[in-house]
Every structure is written in C-alpha cells, then in structure tokens.
Amino acid sequence: MPAQPCLSIMDHVLTAALEDAISAFTGKRSTLSRATPVGGGSISHSIAIEAGSARWFVKLNNAEQHELFAAEADGLRALARCLAVRVPQVVGDGIAGDRAYLILEYLPLAPLGDDTAAENAGRALAELHRMRSERFGWHRDNFIGATRQENTAEQGWPRFFAQQRLKPQLELARRNGGSDRLFRAGNRLLDAVSAFFADHHTEPSLLHGDLWQGNAALVGGQLALFDPAVYFGDREADLAMTELFGGFPHRFYAAYREAWPLAAGYEQRRTLYNLYHVLNHFNLFGGGYLRQAEGMVDALLAEIT
C-alpha cells in the first residue's frame, strides 16, 4: 500500500499556523499534506512537512522556548548575507497554542568529504569571517544550545570573551554541581585571559558561533550552515570549535589557512575557546565534561605561569 499522509503528530492549531506562515511566505495558499518526524535534535523536536510538491523543515518546542527560535532565525538571516555559504531560508516563526515553531527551507544536505568541495567550504568560511563590525558582540543575546549567550557590545575582545563567554558558564557550572576546584581555577583564568592575546590582534568577524560538524554540510557542493549562535568575535573561535567534536576534513583546514593564514599561538587560544563549549556541554549534559573542563583550565593556566 502507498504511504498515507500523516498529520497526527500536529494539532489543528499548529497545522493552521504553519499553513498561514507558509502561505504568507510563498504568496499562495498552502495546505499541508504530510508531516514526518526528523531525528537528530537534542533540544527541539523536528519534522519535515509537505504542502503540494514543496517541502519544509520545522522545529518545535514548548511555547515558552520561542525566544530560542527567534534568535536562530535572526542568526540565519545574518549568515545568509554572506553569499559564499548556503543557509536555509527562514519562512517564519511563532507560537501556536502551547508550542513554538520555526519553519525553514528544506535543504538536501550531504556530508563534508575530504575533497574539492571541502576546500571550497574552507574558503567559504573565510569569506564569512571577512564580514566585519566595529565591536565584538551582537545586537541581541542569543543561545548556545539551550544556554543563553550574552552579547553586549565591547571594544576589547579579551574582556568580551572572559566576561560574556567564560564567566557566565563558570557561574552556571557552580550552580549545576561543578567542583570548587573548577570554579577557583576558572576564576584565576578569567583574570589572566588577556595573556593569551599579548601578541595577537583581533578584529570582529561574523561567526557562526556553534560550528561543529553537526551544524555544517554541503548543498550542491556549497558549504551549508545552520543552527547558529552568531556574534562578532575572533574568527579563531569558529575554527577552534570545528576541531572539538570530530573535526572537519583536512582539506577544509588547508584551504581556509591558504585563504586566510592563522596567527602564531592559535593552538593555545584554541583550548581557551573550546573551554567555553566544554563548560556549556557540562551545563547542558553533565557527565565527564566536568573533568575535561578542569583539565583544560589547568593546561591553560600552565601556559601562562
């Protein structure tokens, strides 16, 4: 038997809201014919929906989490201004009954391989990072995973990273059962962050902000980016995270460095930048991330003592 349309995972209020949003976006009346669960998300529930021959990607969460989606839509629109990368178009976001939703263009994603496309992707990321601002930060706070990410504008990068990246995560880790050892050593590190930038001049580049391999792919051979936590910061922070959870292909890094070489001292700053994400993973998921964070703080302090 042919597969039957399945809209049972959505109620009438949500279905109507999605249809209205898609209709406003396309300029013609859309009626949903199918909704299929999509796996892979740890924070929100995702589905693929169909209206005629068109397909859309939808994220769903509790209504009180709508700010997550509004921030994501804002970040996607910012990334889309760089024509070197492919970003899903934002169709709309809102609240329907007790659920928040975000509707995006459905992209046929392919993984990054160690080939010419990976080289093009490395150069594309360098082009994204060439988008600049006069200050570090962003025009609004947003989220790294489900954790609020502060973005108040700053002129100085070391202070911004210490006060708006590491400090909030350390304070949250303490409330979440992190060790006194981590908190004491982490605060020593906060006071010494500027030592890692004594010979490194940083200018504000547009960052994806959450750039691990699960948030990047290829569409038609072009680098596709999604699930951002955008802000203007040191471009090395994006590069560092690409190396944290499995890494990107070798040819990706070679092409990026050819397009825009990295400064001396990147390896030490890479650990500093990735500490932010490891702390966030402890705050979101607990477990062995605490010990990993402690080790990273100890290694960073050893570099400057």
Rank of each mutant, 00 (worst) to 15 (best):
V91K: 05
P37Q: 07
W260S: 15
L239M: 14
D115T: 15
A217Q: 10
P5K: 07
F183A: 02
T202R: 11
R291N: 10
V219D: 08
S44C: 13
M1D: 00
P249L: 03
E267Q: 09
R140F: 08
F183E: 02
L60D: 10
F226I: 12
F160D: 03
Y253P: 12
W56R: 05
A299Y: 01
V38W: 04
T242Y: 06
R165N: 06
L239I: 15
A217E: 06
K167L: 13
R251K: 15
N142K: 05
L290R: 09
Y101K: 07
I95G: 06
A48M: 11
Q222M: 14
T26N: 07
L301W: 00
A254T: 14
A263H: 14
A217Y: 01
C82M: 11
V58K: 03
Y273C: 03
H200K: 01
Y231W: 12
F226V: 13
P158W: 00
F183R: 10
Q89R: 15
L239S: 12
L107D: 07
L301V: 11
K167T: 02
I22R: 11
T152K: 03
G113D: 09
L300Q: 10
L14V: 15
G92T: 02
K167V: 01
P37N: 05
V91L: 06
L60E: 06
R99L: 12
V85P: 14
D238N: 08
L107R: 13
Y106P: 00
R235C: 00
Q4R: 15
G137L: 09
L32T: 11
G94W: 00
P228V: 09
L104H: 11
G221M: 10
L262F: 00
H66S: 15
S194A: 14
A237L: 03
R130D: 10
H208W: 12
L76F: 00
L18W: 04
Y266Q: 08
S205Y: 08
G122Q: 04
L190F: 03
E150Q: 10
N120Y: 06
L102V: 03
L166F: 01
T15G: 13
N151M: 08
G214T: 06
W138D: 03
K167I: 00
A216D: 14
G233L: 05
N142L: 06
A240P: 05
A263M: 05
R29K: 15
G40S: 07
A3T: 13
A118C: 11
R99G: 03
N274Q: 11
L128K: 11
T147E: 04
V38C: 09
L275V: 03
D210N: 13
R251P: 09
N151A: 09
G295S: 01
